[in-house]
Design a protein around this nucleic acid. Structure first.
Lengths: 301, 301
DNA sequence: ACCTGAACACCGTTCAAGT
DNA sequence: ACCTGAACACCGTTCAAGT
């Protein structure tokens, strides 16, 4: 896919000027204000374009001057000398955090690390395995803490921990989608072990414990994926959720008048009702825990 | 990514023989037995290789003879003549059903339709929009039926309907991940409207109704994505879940002995415990509905 | 031993040229 | 008017050649 959001098109054009030598290191690139004039875009889009260039290491902010063309990266062999699996994984996480899993390509990652694309394959067998390594590294970031005595506190804290991981690294929901079965990722498996420990003192069967864990896991997964996609859309269009709704309003109006969805209309038109994924998360978690409590009540009765 | 599962490598080699003219229309391609001998693979892999070629239209089964090279496709201009958006969407759904969303490329889709890749862009603005059209078409396949009077029956039937859609078209969970906000897909929105109608007679607030709907939606989403990835893995490796576990056992053993996950080990080693996503789905649905029932009890008290 | 350049077999999308 | 071929700017991965 090459959808070419406006901010990327602008960044690409400025990058071309740098590569062509029209702009040399130290030169000022167009300011955000200059970009809004030259391309006729909003300030937010201009800011995004410069941010993208900064992430690529092509420009840097020079205090008191503006954004200038950065010096070419340190020579490659020096960078390659201390290339390690850890450095690769850390850079990949940073890239995915900033621009999503879709922007993580072996080629871009190599550029960020000032290394040839092929050098990565000396430390990592391929992209699939790289994502697995990233996933596990992220699961190791924040400790789960001691296992609470109460099962409900345990499930709740575990779910919030996972949700926290996903808000810090939105791509994680996509990366973990296949983790319902055990995978070769020690820290991700430690999470499952922690949850099972939290359920130790309940009268549930082994199957019920695993199902309870996976029910919550699937739910957090679903919320996380929606979150990731929304953040992506925000980044790519440079629009907030509200602005996006406003822009697509005619489209929705056409559908609504054609199909007539009175209840859905009432919900959105009543106004004031904005879907907040964090509230949704809390709502669904509470319902699920209540449902498990009902089951435990039945089981022990 | 070009992981090249064995069955695809074999299919590619046979396809090359056809293209090179070594095999002409009507010739028999290697039988499954011949493939197992020539490449030293299992019967399942050989079958998959021939199935892949059949899907590509390169070979066809000739009763009483075996699998033979198919005649080259009908001439393109004839096919292009009655190219419509509906035909494109239907072919895309078939392709995604058979090999997953990852195998759906504009180029392959064009080949299947005996049309140039660029002809597709006359009927569909791009791949993103194509997937949206596929999603909506699939939502229209099976009617939801009348809205039940009882809220719980409604939510349950709605969830099972969605789960049914996902089991018939596993890629749908991925395609719908962004559908928590209203999207320009009339039939997908009709589902939300149906759920809201089912909750009409409950004492819930508008927010609680939407949250209840989305809690179940997120959950079905999470289960569906796991399902899709597992099916994908099965297809690509040509192994069943059990065979896969067996193959990766040394890897797990290493992790388990290193990190020690006693509870997880007990669960898998006890044996007999096989995770079935359909049982999981039923379990989690019941818990969530119970939790919502608790809330309704509280609300109306 | 370790890294690189060039190559292979792909992508989605655009656009001038054909019928 | 409608479709195609060639091109552009990408992918992941491999492998012979370099240092």
């Amino acid at each position: 896919m090459t959808p070419q959001p406006p901010y990327l098109a602008i960044a690409a054009e400025i990058a071309r000027r740098i590569r062509s030598g029209a702009l040399v290191p130290g030169d000022r690139v167009p300011s955000t204000r200059a970009i809004t004039r030259e391309w006729g875009v909003a300030m937010a889009t201009a800011t995004k374009a410069l941010a993208a260039l900064r992430r690529q290491g092509l420009v840097r902010p020079e205090p008191g001057v503006g954004t200038v063309v950065a010096a070419p990266p340190a020579d490659r062999s020096a960078a390659a000398a201390h290339l390690t699996r850890e450095r690769i994984v850390a850079a990949a996480i940073e890239l995915a955090d900033a621009e999503g899993l879709g922007a993580l390509t072996m080629r871009r990652l190599a550029t960020v690390l000032s290394v040839s694309t092929t050098a990565l394959y000396r430390h990592v067998p391929g992209k699939g395995e790289l994502v697995r390594l990233m996933t596990d590294a992220v699961c190791a970031e924040l400790p789960l803490g001691p296992v609470p005595a109460d099962w409900r506190t345990g499930l709740e804290r575990g779910a919030r921990w996972l949700r926290g991981v996903y808000t810090r690294h939105r791509w994680m929901a996509h990366a973990m989608a296949g983790f319902m079965r055990p995978v070769a990722a020690p820290h991700a498996m430690a999470y499952t072990e922690w949850i099972l420990a939290a359920l130790r003192s309940t009268p549930m069967t082994a199957g019920q414990k695993l199902h309870s864990h996976l029910t919550i896991f699937a739910y957090v997964q679903g919320v996380g994926m929606a979150d990731d996609l929304e953040e992506q859309a925000r980044q790519e269009t440079g629009l907030s959720g509200d602005e996006w709704m406003e822009k697509n309003e005619p489209r929705f109006d056409a559908i609504q008048s054609a199909g007539s969805y009175p209840l859905l209309n009432a919900l959105t038109e009543e106004g004031g009702f904005v879907l907040d994924l964090e509230s949704l998360f809390e709502f669904g978690l509470r319902r699920t825990l209540d449902g498990i409590a009902v089951m435990i009540g039945e089981t022990s009765a």
